[in-house]
Design a protein around this nucleic acid. Structure first.
Ligand SMILES: [Mn+2]
Ligand SMILES: [Mn+2]
Ligand SMILES: [Zn+2]
Ligand SMILES: [Zn+2]
Lengths: 139, 139
DNA sequence: CCCTTATTGATAAGTTTTTTCAATAATGAG
DNA sequence: CTCATTATTGAAAAAACTTATCAATAAGGG
């Protein structure tokens, strides 16, 4: 995502310094970041950025599809910048670095089976993979 | 899970009144419950049960595989009782009722693809489906 | 530029989760 | 069955996290 500023404007929002910081910090990180982590990373770099703004910005970005929230074991969740559309993430359980991949519809078969068995109608899903990134495999 | 008491003992933990309450309340609920919700449900029934104990009990149960934490949009997460082993959940987005299903390895193909594309090695995953339960479909 | 108004952030309020520690109750030994 | 040991509980307090307020600031259109 690089023309996120365009998208923001288009949607009627202003492109501000704090919002630029949040996006920059997210893009520079290889791992998901929590609001607190973003705030501290920003503060460490003299960014003009308040914690409250981080929360608001993440909520806005999420709404616009610019970031996704991922669930972690300890911290509960963090945010990752993302391309628009249906995405999934694969997160390294050692160093936290994440990669996204498009939501290919490989779940069709599984979903059909489950629908038949349960009577539920499936409308969406949450899928995250975890494992080891190339760098962390030699350990 | 009905011989969870056995499992607790076996693992060296005591079978206590508060722990019985937590498990009972979870088993009686069709939807995931948060610690706060469990506490209130217990209190409403004169259970001897403190909020702190609910947190500790859920952590223990999770460790023993007696419950799983599921992620929701608003509350972040709640707990569901579960059979041991690899499970997934399908949650109604209208009423919250959930059903579990065994983790059939339908992801094999997807995982192989992703591993080849990213160089990561996949060790596990988080999969949740959401949709509408039979009762909520006519609305 | 200047005006309008969305946005920010310090502070405070509200939630959620964890820590402490004395009192309690579960379990095994006798 | 009774007692002693010790894991467990829960009230209270601390810590961490999230949301609400509102005066000051700065984006962006005119
Ligand atoms: Mn979560
Ligand atoms: Mn699975
Ligand atoms: Zn790694
Ligand atoms: Zn339903």
């Amino acid at each position: 995502m690089q023309d996120w500023e365009e998208l923001l404007s288009q949607a009627g929002y202003r492109v501000t310094e704090p919002r630029r910081w949040v996006m920059r910090l997210l893009l520079e990180s290889t791992a998901p970041l929590s609001p607190q982590a973003l705030f501290e990373a920003g503060r460490a770099r003299q960014a003009r950025l308040g914690l409250v703004t981080v929360y608001r910005t993440l909520a806005l970005f999420e709404e616009l599809g610019l970031v996704h929230r991922v669930h972690l074991q300890e911290d509960c969740h963090g945010y990752l910048p993302t391309s628009p559309g249906h995405r999934h993430f694969l997160i390294c359980q050692h160093c936290g670095s994440a990669v996204e991949f498009p939501g290919s519809e490989d779940l069709e078969g599984l979903i059909a089976t489950i629908e038949a068995q349960t009577g539920y109608r499936v409308a969406g899903h949450l899928l995250q993979l975890l494992g080891l990134c190339p760098a962390c495999q030699g350990m």
